[in-house]
Structures are given as structure tokens and as C-alpha cells.
Amino acid sequence: MLELFDINSFYGKAHILNDLSFNIAHGEVVALLGRNGAGKTTTMKSIMQMVRPATGSVTFAGQDISKWPTHKIAKSGIGYVPEERRIFSDLTIVENLEVGRQSPREGVPTWSFDDLFDLFPNLAERRNNRGRALSGGEQQMLTIARTLMGNPSLLLLDEPSEGIAPIIVEQMAKTILELKSQGLTVLISEQNLHFARIVADRAVIIESGTNRFDGNFADLDSDPETRDAYLSV
């Protein structure tokens, strides 16, 4: 469904992604693991063309999206949930969702305001509150809900557990599994291996912007050397 091929991305002269390749099949949840600075966020941004890769290609649903502008990629069905959440703090919850709204897409679940308020009951109670009044956990839910309003077929979640109370992280895990059961494909970048293990089918470990491991968690556990070298839990 999504294929990254030999992506090279730079910030200034710093070479962040180095011939990075991996792919995600339809309906899969893939965890993108790696240290801080390994290039996880840049990978997400490169898919969205918020960082423009110097070389390489990103193929989504059979189309090369490498040269597309960001908004067109979002329109094609990739939903991006950034690490810093970036909710619109001046807008109400409903208005935040409205920004993310797109027309229904064939073959993927369509989300209405009510569906999302069912999925995130905390948000329903506060639907007319401004974003600034939300706690960190609620903000994280709002970013996910806002992205779902675009009826994405592929969801990119950048470190959703960062800075969130353990109990909320558990809820988040349930939500992601629920989304998976509805047929969504998910790429989730994580530093929390425990969390990744719960939600993901497969792990991709990157280090210095290169793919160092690609396989399921059983393989990862049987290869403690790799695990400790790139994750060192």
C-alpha cells in the first residue's frame, strides 16, 4: 500500500534519511522504531512531503506521490498525526475536526462527528471547548480524531505515547487496535517498545536514517543483538 524506496532527506546539510526503504501492506500496523534522532519524524514528514526528500520515491496506492504537494497527499488518503500534536488551540473541538473534514473515500471507513465522539467520549463532553483547554491526553485524542475526519486509508502516528500518562497510553492502544479492525493501515513511530508490541504486527527499526531491521516481534526478540544495538531497552 505504501512503499518508500531509497529515500534520502536532509535538514540543511545534515543527512537524516539515508537510502531508506520499507513498505506497508494493506491493513497492517507497522511500528517504526529507533532512537531519538534516528529519523522517525523525518520519515513521516518525508512521506507527507513536509520535508522534501532529495532522492528516492514514495509510492502510495500505486501512485508515485514523491513530487506532490502536502495537501494533495493528505487528500489522497494519508492522515498524519504529528508528534507535537499541533491542535488549533483557538478553535473549538468541533472546529478542529472541521478543519480535518474531507469527503468520503471509497473502500475505507467514513467518519462523522458522531462516530468520533463515540470513539473518544472525553471529546464529546467538551465539544464546544477551545483546544487550549484540553489536557495533553485529550489533545492527543483530538489530533487523531481530527485526522480521521479526512477518512484516511493510511494513518501516520508520530510517537502518540510521548508525554502521556500510562493509563491513557493503554486506552490509545485499544483505539489503534479498533481502527485496525475497521481496515485502516497504520504506521506508528514509537520509542515505547511495550506499547509498540501491543499494537503493531511488524517492526521496522531505523538508525541513522537506514532500515536496520524489518520483521515481526518474535524475530526481534530472537535477535537481542539488533534490539539492544538500535533500541537498547
Binding site: 493528505a74 488549533f88 478553535l91 472546529e95 478543519v99
Partner: peptide, 23 residues
Amino acid sequence: RLGVLVRAATQDREMVAALGVNQ
């Protein structure tokens, strides 16, 4: 909706683009 988008872009235009709006 236009007004909502305008206010959202006032705050974070890159994010608005990432949500599929041609900024």
C-alpha cells in the same frame, strides 16, 4: 468552513496543509 480554515491557518498553516487544505 472557510472561516474555520482561515482561523486554523492563522495558527498553524503547515498543519492545515497536512490535513488536506491547499494553503
